[in-house]
């Protein structure tokens, strides 16, 4: 393999153009660089398309929905989050979830600790820690009803959260938090 001309120190050995002008040009290196630039711009274009589609969060592909079989609880969340960026998880309750004017649900610690739950709206009437999470009771008049949890993950990673209505099977999902 020939030694690239730009490796030569800047002195009389600097490659001359037409044996006249000492420039130190290396057209082979430059052509390789142009190919690299094309590759980089292709990657940039892919990044933009992925971002527009929501593959890096905050978009169509990032939004997800999970529900219990009877749709008593529907969770709207983002499967791809970004660290230190606010987002909202919405819990929608059907008629089967409402008992005696209340809904009672349990969220795992991951929602608070890993996904960084900042606040819950409306304010629950009771919040009880235990069973690896927090149980909330929220007064509800009639279905449909919704509770919103404001999230702001502190650190990147892959986290599993659980949300469960009282006496029902839990909804378990994973969230990827990007840096």
């Amino acid at each position: 393999m020939t030694r690239e001309s730009f490796l030569n120190p800047v002195e009389d050995s600097v490659p001359k153009v037409d044996d006249e002008i000492a420039v130190g040009e290396d057209l082979d290196f430059q052509r390789r660089w142009w190919r690299f630039e094309k590759l980089v711009w292709t990657v940039f274009l892919i990044v933009i398309v992925c971002d527009l589609a929501g593959l890096f969060g905050r978009g169509w592909l990032a939004k997800a929905e999970a529900s219990t079989p009877d749709r008593a609880l529907i969770v709207d969340y983002e499967r791809i989050e970004r660290a230190n960026t606010p987002s909202t998880m919405t819990l929608r309750f059907g008629p089967a979830a409402i008992r005696n004017g209340h809904v009672q649900f349990h969220v795992s610690d991951a929602v608070v600790r890993d996904l960084g739950a900042q606040r819950i709206a409306p304010q629950p009437s009771t919040s009880t820690p235990g069973r690896g999470g927090i149980s909330y009771v929220v007064p509800v008049t009639a279905a449909p009803a919704a509770v919103q949890i404001q999230l702001q993950p502190a650190a990147p990673g892959r986290y599993t959260f659980k949300i469960q209505l009282a006496d029902a099977a839990p909804i378990t999902r994973r969230v990827l938090v990007l840096p």
Partner: peptide, 27 residues
Amino acid sequence: PRIGAIVDGTPIVIVQGGEWREDVLKG
């Protein structure tokens, strides 16, 4: 010098002996 070329590039001739190098202009 290789890192220098990657970070800063190398000088490149655009006009050589009065002739324009179209590939360089485009590139």
